[in-house]
Structures are given as C-alpha cells and as structure tokens.
Write a protein that binds this DNA or RNA. Structure first.
Length: 483
RNA sequence: GGCGCAUUCGUCUAGCGGUUAGGACGCCGGCCUCUCACGCCGGUAACAGGGGUUCGAUUCCCCUAUGCGCUACCA
C-alpha cells in the first residue's frame, strides 16, 4: 500500500505551532516511507473564514521547510484541495447515506436545539440529539419530510449512529473502544449546504486515497464517528495516529491567550527555522535519545510513528532558546548568518557594511547572544560611535594614571604594520613587561575607550575587526575628554 | 456531569520484568579567563498513590487520584 498522508488545516488566521508539529510529523512519515504529503484546506465553516489565511499557512510551512507533493498551489490528481471548491461533491455522499438509511433529515432550528439541550441538562442527562422527539424524518414521517424538502425548508443531514461499540486501532495509542450510545447523531451536512468537518474529511480522505490519518489528539473522540462513516460508505478505513497535544506551562492546550503560538511570531522573533523545527520535532518523539541536534534528513530517516509519545508535551521556551543558540554557535557558519545580521541592520537604516566585516562581527559575538538579531544591541559600538561610556565601568577602571599608561600604548599601536589580535596582544604584553605592570590596569581602560562597555568579546579580537585606524581614533577621542 | 486519553527529575525525554533509573534544558558550584560568554568538569532533581500478577515490578493488569481533550449546523 502506498503511503499518502495529509495535513488539513482550517484557514482561521495563522499556522499554530501545534499545527506545524502535525504537519511536520506527516511530512516526516511520508518521506520516511517514500509516500506523498498532501495539503488540504478545510474551509467548510463559512463563518470563520479569514482573508489570506491559507496563503499565510503555506508561507509559514514553506519557511519551516515542509514541502507538499500536492496542494492548492501545486495541484494533483485529486485537486483542487480546497474543500469549498469541492462544494457540490459532498451532498451526493450525504444523499447516499440517506438512501441507505444510515443518515436522516432534520429540521430543528438553533433555538429548538438549544432548548433541547437545556432541558436535558436540567434533567441531568447528557446533551445529545434526541432522534425520537425532535423534528426529523422519523418523527415527521416520509410524506411530511418530502413536503418540507420540496418547499425548500432548511434542513441538515444527521448521521444515524448505531448503538453498538465502535472499535478502532491507533498507531500511537493502541485499541480504542467507544460505545455508540455515547456518540451524538452528528450533523453531516449543514443547512447552508456545506458539509461539516466529519463528512468532508472522511469523503476527501477516501477520494484522495489517504492511507494514514495523522492528526492532533483533540480528534480522538470523534474518530468513532469517522469509522462509522467509512463503514456506512463501505470504504477501507485508513490507519489512525493521534498525536499528543502541545501544552502551555499550565499544561493546557497551547493557545493564543498565553504568549506566541503562531509560527510566524517565532520567525519574526528571530528563531532560525532549522533550530525551531528541530525543537518542534522533539516534542513528543525522540529519535535516539543520545543527542538533541538532528538535520531534517536525519529526522526523516529515523522517524517512527509508533515511537511517538502518548502524553502531551509542554512547549518550553528555554529549551527552544538553547536550540537556537546551538545552531548559531555550532551548526551554521558565520557566512551563512550574514544575511540575517544584514537585514537587521538594514531595518535600522544601516546598510553600509561589507559581508566580510559582518562575518567577522558574527564570529566575535555569536557565542554571546541567543539571536543574531541581538548583536547590534549587544555591541552597538561595532556599528556606530560610542554614545556613552558605561559609568560604573569607567569609575572602576579609569584611574589617575590611566591616561599616562594608555597614551604610549596607543602610539605603539599606531606604529604597527600588521594589526591583528595576536600582534596587538604581543605588543601589549611586551609594553606591560617593560613597565612592570599587570594586565588589568590596561585591558579594562582599553575596552572602555574602544567599546564604552564592560562586556564584550576578546579585546584584541574586537580591535582587529574594528581596525587600527578606528581603534586609535577612539582612543584619541577618549583621551581628549579624559586625558 | 458524561465519554475518552494520559501520568519517569521543574521541563523535553531514555527505559520496553532484574539498571547505582540514563541523557538534554534550566538551576547551583568549580575550572578556564582581559569583561561577558563559549567550552570543560561536577552537583541538584523523577518512576502520582494503592492493590494484584511474578522469585522480582518504573516496565504487565485493576482501582483511585490528578491533568488534559471532546461533549456545536467549529475545526
């Protein structure tokens, strides 16, 4: 059997990180099994449509490196993969079920349904559609039903759920059994003619020959309804795998209320997509347990749906940050990170730096920041005049004798032919030895004069990147004021 | 409330009857050191509880507790 899986989001605004995880696992599963991944937009709820949401979803997935084999933009044999564009298709299947006696017409209004539920709750009964008392095909009779439909009265089609036990197998959870009496007579076709998720999902999964349904755990309770549908149509039932939920720090389903949940937010915050995807992949699954860093290819070759955990995983920003730092420091080269710094600077109106300069700057600071985007704030002196000298640092290290100590050193720097960190270091050490003084009375004032800050990269390395002329200019500027 | 799913350090997890219960993040020490980091070394910390099954349970079964999910003409 050839593997075909799908990611089927609703276009309600943006790609949720939980959605990305689901999409990623579908992608990994498909690639691991030489199968296909399909993107299908489930927009059957006309009341929740958001403009451009589908494009936004696709953009976010593209950023994350998830590629689809068939999608609204790519097309395929079963296109167009947007349910609203397949509108006419679903009624036919609803009718088929009615003909088979496995679904029925119902004419209740929203108010009637609300009243029914309130009554049931008052009687301490479970709110559930009451087939025997409400206005439907069974209580009204065939003749009346036909008359109502011919007169274009609004109706819905409901699934006639059997009273028996429904069993299905889940690749992650094993066998699950639910009693039919606990399942509501689900609406299949809404009064606006659109199918509900349940109908559209089952019909499309069948038509698109989906072999494995990999989706979030929130769908587990409605899977029995889908199984009933597959059986009612006489179709093969796909394999199911329900992924554990992604949780917030309060262990609730990750939602917009607490912090960022949109993939684009993380992108905008400066996370490297490889780090982000790596982190997401390891929430609920562990390939080898001996390390944390994996490339996408490694994730694909190691992926095993049956090893996915059952319990929900808390989305821990701390670890995500660590992943980003790891990718900054050990995975990417400085050269690869240059465009990010370049963009960051361009946003600040600074675009006059060469790639080689930025590369050197990144080398200096990548071990000291969590995001490349933080570099201009961490080391503003690499891109601008020093606006102010850190007061505490100045008070602590700039002594009466400092100017007399630093001025001759500056002159020696000026005389250097080759100005790199090693040479500057050697020269400084020599100067200190000649004068029989320690390192600290000089290195801190030097840092103060050239960077204005108490923290930074190695002083001589920083000086090398800034260049001899710039260093001397800064020393002179400082000495004019404090000499 | 009903139904379902889950439960190993604070967090992500390894474990698939016999382990000093391992790793990673975080946190705390130490080393390195021109500051800050990186790095390295070390430490802290877990099998929800109770019954079984078994020579032996973190591991298998049951119950309880707790958490989460679902309970719409939303997905």
């Amino acid at each position: 059997m050839s593997v075909r899986v799908r990611f089927a989001p609703s276009p309600t605004g943006y790609l949720h990180v939980g959605g990305l995880r689901t999409a990623l696992y579908n992608y990994l599963f498909a690639r691991h099994n030489n199968g296909k991944v399909i993107l299908r937009i489930e927009d059957t709820d006309r009341t929740r449509l958001v403009e451009n949401a589908a494009d936004n979803l696709i953009q976010s997935m593209k950023w994350a490196g998830i590629e689809f084999d068939e999608s609204p933009v790519l097309g395929g044999d079963y296109g167009p993969y947007v349910q609203s564009e397949r509108f006419g298709l679903y009624k036919k299947y609803a009718d088929e079920l009615i003909d088979k006696g496995l679904a029925y017409y119902a004419f209740d209004t929203g108010e009637e349904l609300t009243a029914m539920r309130e009554k049931q709750q008052a009687e301490k009964k479970d709110p559930k559609y009451d087939r025997d008392t409400m206005r439907n095909q069974f209580t009204l009779g065939e003749e009346e039903t036909k008359k109502l439909i011919d007169s274009e009265t609004k109706y819905v089609v409901r699934l006639k759920v059997p009273m028996e036990n429904i069993k299905f197998h889940d690749l992650i959870r094993g066998d699950v059994t639910v009693n039919g009496k606990d399942i509501d007579d689900q609406v299949l076709l809404k009064s606006d003619g659109f199918p509900t998720y349940h109908l559209a999902n089952v019909v499309d999964d069948h038509l698109m020959k989906i072999s494995h349904v990999i989706r979030g755990e929130e769908w587990l309770p409605s899977t029995p309804k889908h199984v009933i549908l597959y059986q009612a149509f006489g179709w093969d039932i796909p394999e199911f795998a329900h992924l554990p939920l992604l949780l917030n720090s309060k262990k609730q389903k990750l939602s917009k209320r607490h912090g960022s949940v949109a993939v684009e937010d993380f992108k905008n915050q400066g996370y490297l997509k490889d780090a982000f995807v790596n982190f997401i992949a390891l929430l609920g699954w562990n390939p080898t347990a001996d390390r944390d860093i994996y490339t996408m290819d490694e994730l694909i070759s190691l992926f095993n749906i049956e090893k996915v955990n059952k319990g929900g995983a808390i989305f821990d920003l701390n670890k995500l940050k660590w992943f980003n730092e790891q990718y900054l420091r050990t995975i990417f080269t400085e050269k690869e990170l240059v465009p990010i710094l370049k963009d960051t600077l361009a946003d600040k109106g600074k675009d006059n730096y060469s790639d080689s300069y930025l590369e050197e700057v990144i080398k200096l600071f990548k071990e000291r920041v969590s995001f490349i985007q933080d570099i201009p704030d961490f080391a503003p002196y690499m891109f601008a005049e020093i606006e102010e000298y850190e007061e505490k640092y100045f008070n602590k290290h700039w002594k009466e004798t400092s100017a007399d100590l630093l001025r001759p050193l500056m002159e020696r720097f000026r005389a250097m032919q080759k100005f790199d960190h090693e040479a500057a270091h050697t020269l400084t050490k020599q100067y200190l030895e000649e004068n029989e003084i320690g390192f600290k009375p000089v290195i801190h004032p030097l840092r103060l004069m050239i960077t204005g800050k108490s923290v930074g990269a190695g002083m001589f390395e920083t000086m090398e990147v800034l260049g001899k002329d710039e260093c001397i200019r800064r020393m002179e500027t400082f000495l004019e004021k404090h000499g």
